[in-house]
């Protein structure tokens, strides 16, 4: 039977825009790729992101490619609820079937969402982990926040997650600060998966790791995305990361999406001048 109607997206970003400073039609028209900047010359307003739309379904990973200042961080922060965007809407389908409108939620609701439904894996493990406490304790943080109160059950779940993310169990009770960079990232992944979220945001998850370590972490992430059926957004400036993890991606420049497409298509047949330059530089 022919059914290529995709399942409803788990995460939907619609018309997202965020500006620092006042905006009107000219600020929008006079910023972006054509203007060559996200900062409006006359008013000084920075249009960090504008007119950004995409969606991601469970089991799918979408890449967001761009250099620093492209607006990808702004988009990530808006999804994470860290900033309230100037305009647009971000919605997330929770595991229980309800819809969370992230752009309308209170800080307390955002925090609950981040415990149960939306996880972020940061580039710097120190942003996602407490390095003073143990690997198990870092996972316990997520579990207790979700209401786990049984010590043995918490231990068991933490061990299960650490095993899955290939952290040796004899390190479970060591402070994460004593771990290598790659191992910290694995603990961060374990923590991110603790409450089986429906969406995970991966922010440069392997940047800063040695190539061989990064390959192992990437491989692990790829397997976890398949296994858990998560909807993932992968932000990276590194094409090898995007290529390995995602099926679709968007390219951002000066706060706008300049191109979107299938990942292999964007890498082999980029259409926008900026995409071509990025790919050319990466392939050189």
């Amino acid at each position: 039977m022919t059914n290529i109607t995709p399942v409803a997206p788990t995460l939907a970003v619609v018309g997202l825009g965020h500006a620092y400073g006042g905006i009107d039609d000219t600020t929008i028209a006079e910023t972006g790729p054509a203007a060559g900047t996200s900062k409006h010359a006359r008013t000084g307003t920075v249009v960090a992101a504008w007119d950004v739309s995409f969606d991601v379904a469970g089991g799918e990973a979408l890449g967001v490619i761009g250099e620093s200042g492209s607006g990808k961080s702004t988009v990530m922060k808006s999804i994470a609820g860290d900033i309230m965007p100037t305009t647009g809407r971000v919605t997330l389908q929770r595991g229980d079937g309800t819809t969370a409108v992230i752009t309308e939620m209170s800080p307390a609701e955002i925090r609950a969402l981040r415990v149960n439904d939306l996880s972020i894996v940061h580039q710097n493990p120190a942003d996602g982990l407490d390095l003073r406490i143990t690997a198990g304790g870092n996972i316990a943080d997520r579990l207790t926040a979700a209401g786990w109160r049984n010590f043995a059950a918490i231990r068991e779940r933490a061990a299960e997650l650490l095993t899955r993310t290939e952290v040796p169990l004899d390190r479970m009770d060591d402070p994460v600060g004593s771990f290598s960079g790659g191992m910290r990232q694995r603990v961060q992944l374990a923590k991110a998966l603790a409450n089986t979220p429906s969406v995970v945001l991966l922010d440069e998850p392997t940047t800063g790791l040695d190539a061989s370590i990064a390959a192992g972490v990437l491989d692990l992430i790829r397997g976890l995305l398949d296994e858990f059926g998560l909807a993932a957004v992968v932000v990276s400036h590194d094409f090898s990361v995007i290529e390995m993890l995602t099926q679709r991606c968007v390219v951002m420049q000066h706060g706008r999406v300049v191109e979107h497409g299938l990942t292999d298509q964007l890498l082999e047949d980029p259409a926008h001048p900026y995409s071509q330059r990025l790919v050319g530089a990466a392939r050189a």
């Binding site: 290529i4 298509q265 082999e268």
Partner: peptide, 29 residues
């Protein structure tokens, strides 16, 4: 669709006769 066609059609006919215009299909589809 590793390359985006500039023009023209690519149509895949499914087992039930449905004709899928690959060149015009959304990315997720």
């Amino acid at each position: 669709r590793t390359y985006t066609p500039t023009s023209g059609d690519v149509i895949l006919t499914d087992t039930d006769g449905t004709r899928l215009a690959l060149s015009a299909l959304g990315e997720r589809e």
